[in-house]
């Protein structure tokens, strides 16, 4: 669906329908694939609305350069990068300040889920490449990177699901896309670990009242729950398909 480039008058119409035809509490359609890269130890690909993101994981392997190794645990390294063609106007491929910051928050969102203490002195590298961006890439990146980690066979406490909620036209909505993010009033991205019920990423830009903030967090958590179900389903799907095929 084509979304107008100019600032639309209204982000939500009279029937509570958003620019891309979604309801207020509705996620964008999500498609996930596991094990898409042969050369990486683990990989995954996600399409969330118009976002297209690829994640690859290497390791645990010997840390290079050696002085970066930590004596009692593995070093988790993360690179979030946007391809030059991922946005409307060509983005310089040099990592920007924003990309460095996102690399750091994504790493911190994933680290509590990984048993880094099992493999001291090693490094685990995560590469996230944004092929096409349409708002909420940090959340989709966390979702897909946690699947790539699981695909690499790295032991984890749980998967990490991430989702954003925000405020547009004075209303709280789930999973903002680019135009809503830019024209709206606030955006609250959140990453969540299901079985310990822990929040591993929580950011906000824009302004919300305390009540609205609480509501937005709860809304984003609900979104994370849906995404987590989808993550589990896709991880199993590949194996279930083979099993059904051969056992008939």
């Amino acid at each position: 669906m084509k979304v107008p480039k100019k600032k639309p008058k209204k982000l939500i119409d009279e029937k509570d329908v958003r620019l891309d035809g979604r309801g207020l509490n509705e996620l964008r359609p999500i498609k996930i694939e596991i094990g898409v890269l042969d050369n990486a130890d683990g990989s995954a690909y996600i399409e969330q609305g118009k976002n297209k993101i690829l994640a690859g994981v290497y390791g645990p392997k010997e840390a290079h350069p050696k002085h970066l190794s930590i004596p009692d645990r593995a070093r988790l390294r993360c690179r979030y990068h946007m391809a030059p063609f991922s946005v409307d106007e060509r983005k310089s491929p040099v990592p920007s300040r924003r990309e460095r910051e996102l690399s750091k928050v994504i790493r911190q969102a994933l680290e509590p889920a990984v048993f880094v203490e099992y493999y001291p002195r090693t490094s685990i590298d995560i590469f996230i490449e944004i092929l096409q961006a349409d708002g909420g890439t940090r959340c989709a990146a966390i979702t897909v990177a946690s699947l790539a980690l699981a695909d690499a066979g790295i032991p984890m406490r749980s998967l990490v699901a991430a989702c954003a909620a925000g405020k547009i036209d004075g209303r709280l909505v789930l999973d903002l896309m680019d135009t809503e993010d830019k024209e709206g009033e606030a955006d609250v991205p959140l990453a969540w670990m299901p079985n310990s019920n822990a929040i591993t990423l929580l950011q906000m830009d824009g302004s919300l009242t305390i009540e609205e903030f609480e509501q937005a967090v709860n809304m984003a958590m609900e979104g994370c729950k849906k995404i987590h179900e989808l993550q589990k389903e896709t991880l199993k799907a590949k194996y279930v398909a083979v099993k059904e095929e051969v056992e008939e």
Binding site: A113, A150, P155, M156, R157, S158, L159, M193, P194, N195, Q231, K232, L235, K236, Y239, V240
Partner: peptide, 8 residues
């Protein structure tokens, strides 16, 4: 049965 990380 197939399980994923974090399954109880």
């Amino acid at each position: 049965e197939i399980v994923t990380p974090g399954d109880l």
